[in-house]
């Protein structure tokens, strides 16, 4: 088992390791090594194509949590310039599970806010596995209100298993922090674009997700509860996570069909974790295009359309 590959990617992992082995033998070995490598590479490509052409919802949920998948700061570094991170909620602390700050997109000032997961164990703990405390949401709110004052669009990146379920989180008003953000974002007088880059976990995701344009990466998910959580409540066992994932329709494609998501942003073959630059380019193009469209609207139109969009959720008369 190669830990950098998911279960269903293991056949690809085997081929890739063979390719690496052969390539490392270099010129010293037999003449036809290059041919062999090329053949294996073709095989790996077609195998990847066939595996990824028919992924189940549960497989996509696993890709959304892939340990090598790019996180918010990976995108910030690739898409924006002059990022200045801003810290703290001014009341209690600085939550490392949400990052935010000002930067430039294609030269224009923007406010960035995103969930942040950690790569290694130490960083994972420091980022609390991307699960924010109330102060994280309150930092986000402070930055959004600042963006409104200085007429900057807000771009959010969603990637969390959910808001942190802890004792202190409850004491400091996790519910209120999330609720307040929903209200503030509904009436924030500046364009908001939300991009789901990994896991869109419930209220903890939506708390930075109310927007004018909602886009999801091809292999990201967005749902009311994790597949495991849904399975353990409705099926009485987390082992039915795959059924729950299917039933909830949490993939970008399905949610786009249902009209809940505006755009599916394509990922490179095999998923964004194979090529961070390519997936960042893909997001950047979508952000520039949509921001241009939204910025052209006058404030009243923007606000009216956002309100109508919120009111239309799940009910069409």
């Amino acid at each position: 088992m190669n830990p950098n590959y998911l279960d269903f990617e293991q056949p690809i992992a085997e081929l890739e390791s063979k390719i690496e082995e052969l390539s490392s033998m270099g010129d010293s070995a037999a003449l036809n090594i290059n041919d062999e490598v090329k053949q294996l590479k073709d095989k790996s490509l077609s195998l990847t194509e066939s595996i990824f052409s028919d992924l189940s919802s549960w497989q996509i949920a696993q890709l959304a949590r892939h340990p090598k998948r790019p996180y918010t700061l990976d995108y910030v570094a690739r898409i924006f310039t002059e990022f200045d991170e801003l810290h703290g909620d001014r009341t209690y602390g600085d939550d490392k599970a949400i990052v935010g700050g000002v930067a430039r997109l294609d030269g224009k000032p923007v406010m960035l806010i995103g969930h942040q997961k950690g790569r290694d164990v130490k960083e994972k703990v420091r980022r609390n596995f991307g699960m924010p405390q109330p102060e994280g949401y309150r930092k986000a709110m402070r930055l959004m209100q600042m963006a409104e004052r200085f007429k900057m669009p807000v771009l959010t990146f969603i990637d969390t298993p959910g808001a942190y379920p802890g004792i202190e989180a409850e004491e400091r008003g996790q519910s209120e922090a999330i609720a307040r953000n929903l209200a503030v974002m509904a009436s924030l007088r500046t364009p908001i674009i939300a991009t789901v880059i990994g896991e869109g976990g419930s209220g903890g995701a939506l708390a930075i997700g109310v927007c004018d344009h909602l886009q999801m990466l091809q292999y990201s998910t967005y749902s009311v509860i994790s597949p495991e959580g849904c399975a353990s409540i409705l099926w009485k066992s987390a082992e039915y996570a795959s059924d729950a994932a299917e039933a909830m329709g949490l993939t970008a494609r399905r949610l786009h069909e249902l009209g809940l998501v505006d755009q599916v942003v394509p990922e490179p073959l095999g998923g964004g974790h194979r090529d961070h630059d390519a997936v960042a380019d893909s997001i950047k193009a979508a952000l520039i295009e949509n921001l241009e469209r939204l910025s052209a609207k006058d404030e009243e139109t923007l606000m009216t359309e956002r309100y109508q969009r919120l009111m239309s959720y799940g009910f069409n008369g």
Partner: peptide
């Protein structure tokens, strides 16, 4: 909480109800 059987439709009701409360406030 939110109704699991309506999945993301339910989640979006959080945003919808919060938004109408902003109208009340206005």
């Amino acid at each position: 909480g939110a109704r699991m059987q309506e999945a993301l439709f339910s989640l979006m009701q959080m945003a919808k109800t919060s938004a109408v409360l902003e109208k009340l406030k206005e």
